[in-house]
Simulated scan of single mutants.
Amino acid sequence: MTEKKADLDYKQLFDDAPCGYLLVDTGGVIVGANAWMSTVLGYPAGGLDGKRLRDIFSIAARILYETNLAPLLKLQQAVSEVTLDLKRVDGTAVPVIMAASSAPNSSGLEDMTRIAFVHAGERRLYERQLVSARDSAEKDLAQQQSDGVLREQFIAILGHDLRNPLASISAAARILGKETLSDRSRQVIALMQGSALRMSGLIDNVLDFTRARLGGGIGVELHPEQALEPLLDQVVQELRASNPAHEIVATYDVTQPVKCDASKIGQLVSNLLGNALTHGDRATPIHFHAETTDSGLFRVWIANGGPSIPEEVIPKLFDPFARGESHGYKEGLGLGLFIASEIAKAHGGTLVVRSSEGETRFTFEMTI
């Protein structure tokens, strides 16, 4: 192959390359540009020769090159994967990725900087999308943090501003109940006490539901309870007082200490008994039993009469705001069973339901 032929092949490869090539001298003047560069920037063939490199850069790219890239080239003889904009002859921008080398080689170009460019339109679009997604995520995070403050305020209102007046109403009803009253007045006070009890349970359930959803579960403080039976009996007595027409038969065999959060166990029992009172057959007594076993378990079960829960309802029975509608099991399951289930989980225990014609039984078990 002759030297002239080799020169021709080299020039042809240089011009036909699917990317841009520039040769730039030490003074920053373009001494060679392939056809890709001329076409992309809107210059005629050879129209870039003799122009300064800075003239084909956008203002931002010029600043980047002169303050960052040129010093790097002197220091380490190469830069790569630099995203910047070139300037077309009509002033519009062309997004590109640049790589450059100024290391000496055997081709006699040791005093030249060799620069390659490829289109970066899709990459720049992707980068803009990433930036937009990041900005959107930051805004969403800020909104969630703001919402979190509102939720905390909501919890505070429920936990303080509603509990305190409710406690006052309950105390006032108890005081009036000790006075000499007519039968009608005693009925009214009983209704007030029942309503206050239901409202207190509702506040507890909403608070725990909110905490469970925000914090990933209901928090409990476990302490060895030497006398759990009086607390359970208090829950039963309160529900008896507010539901005098529905008999509750309670038995206890709690002979061992139970490591638990007593207030939460009381809430679990209250929710399960409240569910039985709402959905059970009023002509059939509700049976409540609590016990500790020789195998190291604390067990509570509550059974009510009435039609069975439909099979299709049972898998969703412990979901929040679950609704079932068939025979005695109609609307109104709400949060009670969900909160009871979450309390059981927080104690490392289980809450299961078995339902057949004539009896529905919820059983809670945990290790003591």
Rank of each mutant, 00 (worst) to 15 (best):
V94D: 02
E291C: 04
G274S: 03
R213L: 11
Q145M: 04
N68F: 08
D111G: 15
R114H: 15
R282Y: 09
P44T: 12
I59A: 15
Q77K: 15
R240L: 07
P18C: 12
S136F: 14
A156I: 05
L191D: 13
P165T: 00
E365I: 04
N275L: 03
F338I: 06
S132E: 13
A167I: 06
F288K: 03
A227Y: 13
I63V: 14
L109S: 00
L8M: 10
V149Q: 10
L268K: 01
Y10G: 00
A93D: 12
T210M: 14
S80Y: 07
R184W: 13
A340R: 00
Q129H: 09
T113A: 05
Q234P: 01
E357K: 09
V258S: 00
I155N: 07
I248M: 02
R54V: 14
V352T: 10
L181S: 06
D55E: 11
G305F: 01
E365P: 04
L228H: 04
I97P: 08
N164H: 15
Y252P: 01
E179K: 04
P315C: 06
D25M: 05
G121A: 14
S132N: 09
V40Y: 10
L72H: 09
L214V: 10
Q267C: 08
R114F: 15
V300R: 03
E357S: 09
A100V: 13
Q193M: 13
L141M: 06
N271P: 03
R361P: 05
L297K: 12
S101E: 12
P307E: 12
I286H: 04
G215T: 01
L69A: 05
Y21G: 03
E359K: 14
I339D: 06
A6L: 13
F364G: 00
L176Y: 12
I339F: 04
Q187K: 12
G215P: 03
L162N: 01
Q12T: 13
N243A: 13
I157P: 11
E359M: 13
R186I: 05
G20K: 02
S58M: 06
G194D: 00
L13Y: 09
I189P: 00
V220N: 01
L268F: 02
N164A: 14
A137C: 12
L69H: 02
E110Y: 07
A120C: 04
G296C: 06
V258K: 03
D16H: 15
I339H: 08
A190W: 10
D319T: 10
C19W: 08
G332L: 08
S168K: 14
T2N: 15
Y65Q: 05
G358W: 03
Q226V: 15
M366C: 09
A70E: 14
L273K: 06
A137P: 04
G280E: 02
F57K: 11
I155P: 06
E66A: 05
G328N: 14
V254N: 01
M192I: 07
A276Q: 01
I302H: 05
A120M: 02
L317S: 00
Q237T: 13
A78T: 08
A133F: 08
R186S: 08
F209D: 05
D7V: 11
G328R: 15
V249W: 07
L41Q: 02
Y329C: 13
E342S: 07
D294K: 15
R323S: 13
L86N: 11
S132F: 01
L197I: 07
L232V: 09
A344G: 12
G306K: 07
R134E: 10
Q144T: 12
T210K: 11
G108V: 04
L69F: 03
L75Y: 12
V220W: 01
L86H: 11
V82A: 03
